[in-house]
Structures are given as C-alpha cells and as structure tokens.
Design a protein around this nucleic acid. Sequence first.
DNA 1: CTGAAAGCGCTTACAG
DNA 2: CTGAAAGCGCTTACAG
Lengths: 335, 335
Amino acid sequence: MSPTIRDVAQKAGVSVATVSRVVNDRPGYSAETRNKVLRVIEELGYQPNALARGLVSKRSRTVGVLIPNISSMVASEMLKGIEDAAHTIGQSVIVCNTDNNGERTLEYLQVLKEKQVDGIIVVSAPITPLYHQKFGEMQVPVVLVSTRYHDGNLPFVKVDDEKAAYHATAYLIKKGHEEIGMIAGSKDDRIAGIPRVEGYRKALSDHGIPIRDQYITYGNFGFQSGMAGLERLLEAAPEITAIFCASDEMAAGALSLAHRRGIEIPDRLSLIGYDDSQLAEMTIPPLTTLRQPLCQMGQEGLTMLMAMIEEGKRTIHSKILPYTIVERETVRELR
Amino acid sequence: MSPTIRDVAQKAGVSVATVSRVVNDRPGYSAETRNKVLRVIEELGYQPNALARGLVSKRSRTVGVLIPNISSMVASEMLKGIEDAAHTIGQSVIVCNTDNNGERTLEYLQVLKEKQVDGIIVVSAPITPLYHQKFGEMQVPVVLVSTRYHDGNLPFVKVDDEKAAYHATAYLIKKGHEEIGMIAGSKDDRIAGIPRVEGYRKALSDHGIPIRDQYITYGNFGFQSGMAGLERLLEAAPEITAIFCASDEMAAGALSLAHRRGIEIPDRLSLIGYDDSQLAEMTIPPLTTLRQPLCQMGQEGLTMLMAMIEEGKRTIHSKILPYTIVERETVRELR
DNA sequence: CTGAAAGCGCTTACAG
DNA sequence: CTGAAAGCGCTTACAG
C-alpha cells in the first residue's frame, strides 16, 4: 500500500493535521517541524490521495471537456490549448468525445457531475436548452469555446464568425474578384454556418456586388463536402473566379476537385479557407485562409473557467478573439 | 447542495447500506424496497459522488493517457479509440499532453497517481527506464499503444513496423520499381524509425535489389521534413522512381515539393505513405499508404488495460495488429 | 432482506 | 505552533 498521511504523521512524530498543513502550505508550524515532515514525506514517497482531498475540499482539480470529435484537426487544436492551460495551473482534464450525440452528451454530463469536476468546457457543439438546463442543475461553471448559446446566458470565447467571413470575402474583393462563390457549412448551423454566410453576403452588398443564390452551396465542413460543393458551383456558376470556403477541410476538398478537373488554382480560380488548421500549409498549393487562434481559444476558455471557479461566479464576460488572414498561395490578384 | 445517499435513505425510510446496495446492484433487498429507493433517487435526482466511491472502493473508474501531442492526426485517432472504448465501459479518461518532455511526463505521472487512476496508457512515446521504474512504484497497470519498451516487460499493442515497412516496400517492388528511396523517420527512434528502415532494407535485399545509402534520408515524421527529404533525395539520387515515406505527413510534404519542382506524381515518381491518417485521402493525388488501424489500436489498448485492472494482473500478452495497404493514386505500375 | 458501525484518507474548525 | 475530533459521502463486513 502507498503511505497515507497517517504514516507520515506517525513517522514524523506529529499529528496528521500538521502534515496536512505543510502539504497544503497553510500557516501553523515551525520551520523545524516543516523540515522534519518534508523529510519524512520524501523518505516515504508520500503522495496525497486526490480523491480524499477532493471529497472534503469540494474541489476535484479536474475539469471536463465535451468535444464532438477529438480527432478533428480544428477541435483537437482547441483541446490542446485547454489541456495546456489546465496543466500549468494543476488541473486535470477529462475528455468526452460526444460525437455530437445528444444522449451521449447527457451521459457524459452525468459522469462529470459524479466525478465532481470543478467546471466544464464545451467545444464547438450546438447547445440545446436541455443541456443548458442540465448545466443549471449541476451547479457547475460552464464555458463555451467556439460556440455559443443563443437562448440564454453562457460565457463563451470565439471569434466573430460573421465579421471574419466578411473580412475573408472582402479580401477576395480587394484582390479584384467580383464573381465570388461560397462553399458554406451546414445550412442550419447557427454558430459556424449561418453567420459566415451572412458575413459573406454583407461583404458583397457593402461593395456593391449583387448576391446570387446560385453562388452559394452548402456542405458539412468536411473534405468530401468541399469536393461536392465545388462540383455544384462549377455547374451552376462557371463564371466564378473566387470561392470563400467555410473551413480549410472543405477548401482542401475543393482543391482536390479542381485538380481533378484540371482547373488551376489560383490561376483560374482563387480559394480562401477558414480556420488555419494544420491542413492549410499542407495543401497544394498552400492555402490562404482566415485564421482562428484555435489553441489560444482553448487556453482563454480554461482561464475563464478557472476565474468562474475561483471567484464563485456563475457567469463572466465572454471573449471575442481576433482573426487574421494568412496569405499563402491560393488567391490570385485579378487585374 | 446535491442530495447525498443519506438524503435518499432518510426519505425512503431505509438505511444508507440498502441504498448503496440498490445503487450498486448488489443483492440484498426486496423488490419493494428497490422500487421505493429507485423512486426516491429519481425524485431527488440523486447522483453518487464518485470521489467518495473511489475513496472506499479503490477504483476511480478513470484512466490516464499520456500522449506526446493531442493534435497530431495519428495520435488523436488512437486517443479517440481509447476514449470510445473507455466510455462504453464507464471509464473516464484524463488526457496528458506530454510534448515528449521528460519532466512534464513525470509531473503527469505524479498527478495520475494522486488521482488514483485505475490504469495508464501511454501512446507512441519512447519509454525510458526512469518511466518504467515509476510505473513499478505506482503499482498501476500500464499498457503501451504504438510504442514498446525494449529493456523490460510492458504490454503493448502496435503493428509490426518492420514487417509493415517490408510490405510497403515489397508493394513498390511488385509494381515494377527497383530504384526505391526512403524518407525515414527519426534516425534514433527505436519504435517507428529504425524498424521501418530495417523493413525497407530487408525487402530490397530479399528481392535482390542493392541497398544504397544515398537512397535513404531521415526526417522527423513531419510535413516539412518530408519536403526536405525529397529535396535531398532528388539531389542525391535523381534516378529513383519510387519512395517509401515513413509517415503520411512526410509523404504529403514530398507531394508538395514534387509539385513545386514540376515532378508528376505518380507518373515520374511513385510515393507510398505510412499510417493512413485523415490526411491520406486529402492529398493531391490521394495517397497510397500503409494503413495502421489507429482507432482500433486505441480500443485494444484500453481493453487490455481493463483486463489487467480487473484480473489484477501485473502484465498481459501484447498484441500485434494487422496492417493493410490502401491503394489510392500515388503509385504507378512500371512496365 | 436489512441496519449499525467502521473505515477509506484527507481537511478544517476548535481548543489550547 | 500543535493536536484531537468531526466530518466529507460513500462501501463493506458483520450481525441479525
């Protein structure tokens, strides 16, 4: 058996209370006592039992993160940011891959509650009223990363998708493009779907460019849907000279289809992506894209969560993070 | 405050022991009692405190996984497999992103010990004797996924890298290639570096093809190193007609460089990758590659770990999983 | 079938 | 500066 606090107390000839004090850096012992205790801890290789600690202190030093797909390139980057920030302040993270499945999410919520997590982060998943209600019942701080809740108040950190999409589209316009298509995300996605389309539309109309429905096609952010998207666009609007893709993966799909069709990028068609995931620099040619600070979003999310935990606040100010455009080689200047 | 077992006992008019029994499905109560208790649990929304449970039962129902980089495409796939298997049997997973940093790894090991994890999985990281020693001290089952320990006995699940590399190389030979280069992984990596080179060499010599040192170049499994690798190979051995890349990412890098140099793939140069990560189907052209069952490796790893935990075994048989070749479009048949 | 009691390994008033 | 004691929320013999 591993040594317990009693073992070190006995061997050091002090009470368990004293050992607890030095372990937790609370005042109440002489330098001499401290050294003696520390020495014994060292000798015995004592490590406090976090379960016991958590049981009495009501702090498990663990947070839960709900994430639709751990192996998604963009989500995993955010998870990394969360884990990194958590580690530096001594919190552990339990990952929950929800697959965007409601039932599964609810199961995880229950587990996290039972495990007494100090807080929960949910990454880029739509929040339903039911989840929101559960959060309330659980009495646990929650922060949203790369998503938000429209029907109530839940702190979030994300970029402003509409503005970002506006910016990406305006960039294309600035490069001289006017026939600009869009391969959008899911049509009913209120987080990363609709707002990006809105931004695209607004950019066009602000620059006096007519909006044509046949210039917009919808995918699901994945590679295949990017291929299919370009295929439809080529059919419906061959005059297009540039496309704004709502994710790098879809842009990569478009790139592949373009290659297959012998369409040269960026010579005959310009493409701008969204995310700046690892993929962006691996495509041929390397993808110009709108960068979200993925890792930082995760870090900030965890920081906000800790603030809520420590200050006992039920809510806190949300954070909008800045995007940038990373210029690589898929956008051509039109003259 | 959330209701405790006492609250439900009181309200149901039974003892806490009885409540505990029905919650844990242990024998020792009438159907009537059971229903009453269940009803109260429902009413109160009682959820057992896992910390308290773990403290007495010595089972936290949590495992720790050490992983060099959560956002790596190959590692995250294995993590997903682990998480998935864990979820189905009611275990939680704490992720620890080690960055392949020794100090950080040791810190995590301590945290996991304190959190009383039931077991630990380490994913694709080299195991040092120091780690091995710590594992022993911790008295916790450990299984290795996509790595192994050469200086002692630690159960692992992986594919046979040497055989896999042999197979990939032999595939190229079967397609008529004889001038075959290799972009290898890290030169001193005893897991995914050296064995794959060995397999490559053996395949050549078994087929009567001379091994030339200038046909082999080393990278670090990453995209950039794949580009650099091809660049060196082109310089040192322009006569090469095919290359075996020790990772898909390096293959993607090679693809990019080839494109930049105007070298057509597979017409002038064939390429085979290793992993079959998500990337493989996104490259241009789609990458022929040696597939590791990444997700399954994670699942099996967790299954093995649970077997060790439940049977109290300190060790268990390792598992070698089968690879396959996924034929896409980067290898040309030479005639 | 059921309950009283001990105990898991800690922290935290309280008292001195 | 230090210790005895209660208590966190459970499970598990033990006794009936």
